[in-house]
């Protein structure tokens, strides 16, 4: 009998490998973050990138939009931005004698919401509502947003002056939250030598056909999740609720998010079944912004999640 090896588990086609490779050339040394961002997109969720300015948040969003052939728009959030500025306005056209809706920048397939915590809560909630509903209601009329619809929001660490930190209920709308962090010395050196990457990102070719992304999302949804894996996810959820180092535990919605993200992660690796490894890999990105670490009440840190993983046996 021919016995399998681990590689045989990952035998499904991996059409996104070129995307990952090209993106990695632009944003150097951040393969993990790119993979997480892609997984988030494939799982149909929105992404929150939290980091200091100049770490490549915008470049990442831009690169993904270009490579995936998505229509891209960027909204710079400021404190005087109004909901209509992002959803769009109706103007009266005199020739035709009627109002015409001018769609706002939200009507794009990949929206980069830059520095979301600089906007007022009113504008923030307009964006978050659109993210949840995938539609925009303006002047009594509901308009569908394009599909796929994917928001990458960026946020500077909340202790900066003049910001409105997102409340927990809205953080929950983001499937994942990642930090890019400083590049490692080698990556930084090649970045400094090559000059800014933003222009390069603008010139990237689309690697996917129009409906490839939708097909991929379908395939991700079909990745097998066994009862044993659900047991594991449930054990992790229960552990967050029991663990006194967290203010409160993860919600069932967080559990759903975890499974969806694990599916996408598995699919990106070429597997048609999700493994505990996938759950462990996406857990920090999915759970950190949904948990409050005690004492202090800040986001849970990756160390907390690592400790959590170590406290839960795999069933």
């Amino acid at each position: 009998m021919r016995l399998p090896d681990l590689a045989s588990l990952a035998a499904a086609p991996r059409p996104f490998d070129p995307v990952l490779a090209r993106a990695g050339e632009v944003i150097r040394g951040k393969d993990e973050a790119i993979r997480l961002a892609l997984a988030c997109l494939l799982a149909g969720g929105h992404l929150l990138i939290e980091d200091l300015p100049g770490m490549g948040k915008t470049t990442l969003a831009h690169t993904l939009a270009r490579l995936l052939g998505l229509q891209f728009s960027r909204i710079q959030f400021t404190s005087d931005l109004l909901p209509a500025d992002i959803t769009g306005v109706s103007i009266f056209e005199r020739e035709r004698g009627e109002f015409r809706f001018l769609p706002g920048p939200l009507f794009a397939q990949l929206v980069l919401a830059d520095e979301i915590n600089r906007a007022t809560p009113k504008t923030q909630s307009a964006l978050l509502e659109a993210m949840e509903e995938r539609q925009v209601t303006a002047e009594g009329q509901t308009r569908e947003l394009p599909t796929p619809f994917f928001v990458i929001a960026t946020q500077n660490p909340a202790h900066q002056i003049g910001t409105f930190p997102l409340p927990e209920s809205q953080l929950d709308r983001f499937l994942m939250r990642i930090e890019l962090g400083y590049p490692d010395p080698a990556a930084e050196r090649s970045l400094l030598a090559a000059g800014g990457q933003r222009a390069r990102a603008e010139r990237l070719p689309a690697l996917l056909a129009a409906d490839d992304l939708a097909k991929a999302q379908q395939a991700v949804a079909g990745v097998h999740v066994s009862p044993a894996l659900i047991d594991y996810v449930q054990a992790l959820l229960a552990a967050t609720r029991r663990d006194p180092s967290f203010q409160h535990g993860l919600s069932p919605r967080a559990g759903l998010a975890l499974i969806a993200a694990a599916r996408a992660w598995a699919w990106l690796a070429g597997r048609d079944l999700a493994l505990p490894d996938d759950v462990q890999a996406v857990l920090p990105a999915v759970a950190c912004h949904r948990l409050r670490a005690l004492p202090g009440g800040g986001y849970a840190r990756p160390e907390d999640i690592a400790a959590l993983i170590r406290s839960v046996p795999i069933p």
Binding site: M1, L3, P4, D5, L6, S8, L9, H224, S226, A228, L229, D272, L273, A274, L275, P276
Partner: peptide, 30 residues
């Protein structure tokens, strides 16, 4: 190599839709 075979067979059997116990048994025996 042998353990990898066991792990692969186990993962397929436990987390996959169509686990084959015979393969796992053979892998463990080896």
């Amino acid at each position: 190599a042998d353990f990898e075979a066991v792990a692969a067979a186990y993962l397929r059997a436990r987390y996959g839709p169509d686990g084959d116990l015979a393969i796992l048994r053979a892998a463990v025996a080896r």
